[in-house]
């Protein structure tokens, strides 16, 4: 798999470390009264879709940036890659 890195261009997936579903960016608020169940869902439950999946890859052998890669889990086709920092900054703070 070739990942189109937004800064470095096409890079081999072997340079990256995979973490999982990009929803891991949405860490719950630990002070919220329901934080226990929110963290259970955040840590353990996954949508695990057969199809388009947004996921986190870390460019460990490269510029050490985190990317949000959109990939089809039934074909391994990579649809896009964005910097995870940009994705996180564009989100509303989690409640």
């Amino acid at each position: 798999m070739i990942i189109p890195h937004p800064l470095l261009g096409p890079r081999d997936a072997q340079e990256f470390v995979y973490l999982g579903d990009a929803s891991l960016l949405d860490r719950p608020d630990w002070q919220h009264p329901e934080a226990g169940s929110a963290y259970y869902e955040y840590l353990y439950l996954r949508d695990n879709p057969a199809g388009v999946h947004r996921e986190l890859w870390f460019h460990e052998q490269g510029d050490r940036s985190w990317l949000v890669v959109t990939r089809d889990t039934t074909t391994h086709e990579i649809l896009s890659a964005e910097l995870a920092s940009q994705v996180a900054l564009s989100k509303e703070p989690v409640r």
């Binding site: 995979y18 579903d21 889990t73 039934t74 074909t75 391994h76």
Partner: peptide, 8 residues
């Protein structure tokens, strides 16, 4: 395992 989500 290969180490990424997949159904292929």
């Amino acid at each position: 395992i290969d180490g990424y989500n997949t159904y292929a």
